[in-house]
Computed example of a mutant assay.
Amino acid sequence: MPLLLLNLRNVPDDEADEVRALLDENQIDYYETRPSLWGVSGGGLWLPDDRQEDQARARLAAYQAARGERARREREQALSEGRAPSPWAAFRENPLRALATLLGIVLMLGLATLPFLFFTRG
């Protein structure tokens, strides 16, 4: 029975490519499903049967641990060098999106507090 090894929703392309290469290097059979047109499925990497599940999961766990450690080191280095993205940098990069986000937050807070403002006065 096919077994989902990795859901590709929100997985960066470089990580998906590295996982495919890892599976190929270790001669682990897999197939890939693409994301659905309507966004219901994010796609995935599947094992055709469960005979290689233990090997595939062990390799994937080791890869993800190494990738996580590498990402933490890169983040710490960016912070120490002052290159890490900040909220101000995100605002400068895309001010319209930042303002729309802030407006949405204010509107949601306003809608959430309206019942308390109008219906608690007795």
Rank of each mutant, 00 (worst) to 15 (best):
G82E: 03
Q52V: 09
L23E: 13
A21Q: 13
L22Y: 05
N94F: 01
L8A: 04
E81N: 10
D54C: 04
D49H: 13
W88P: 01
Q77F: 02
A62P: 01
A65V: 07
E32H: 10
L111K: 01
W38Y: 11
G82M: 09
D17H: 09
E76N: 14
E15L: 09
L109N: 11
F119C: 14
R83D: 02
P115R: 06
S41F: 10
R51V: 06
V11R: 02
Y30H: 15
R51K: 15
I28P: 02
L6M: 15
G110N: 10
M108T: 09
E74G: 14
D14S: 14
S80V: 03
S36K: 08
D29W: 00
P115F: 06
Q64T: 05
P48R: 06
D17T: 11
L111A: 15
E15A: 03
A84Q: 11
P115H: 05
P12C: 03
Q27L: 15
A112N: 12
R51W: 00
M108L: 07
A112W: 07
A61C: 02
E76I: 07
F119E: 15
D29G: 03
G104K: 03
Q55T: 11
S86T: 15
A90V: 02
L117F: 07
L96P: 01
D54P: 05
A56Q: 13
P2Y: 14
L99P: 04
Q55C: 01
A16D: 06
G68H: 08
Q77S: 07
V106F: 13
Q52A: 13
F119R: 14
D29C: 02
A62R: 10
T101W: 00
A21N: 06
R97E: 10
N26D: 06
R59D: 12
A56H: 11
S86I: 10
D13V: 06
R72V: 00
D29N: 03
P48H: 02
A84M: 09
V11D: 05
A89H: 04
D54A: 11
R72I: 03
A90W: 07
A56W: 12
L45K: 05
W46S: 03
F91K: 03
A98R: 06
F116T: 07
L99C: 12
D29T: 09
D49C: 10
P2S: 15
L79W: 08
L47F: 00
L111F: 15
A98T: 11
Q64W: 06
N10C: 11
N7H: 14
A16I: 02
L47T: 03
A84H: 12
T33F: 04
A56K: 15
L114Q: 01
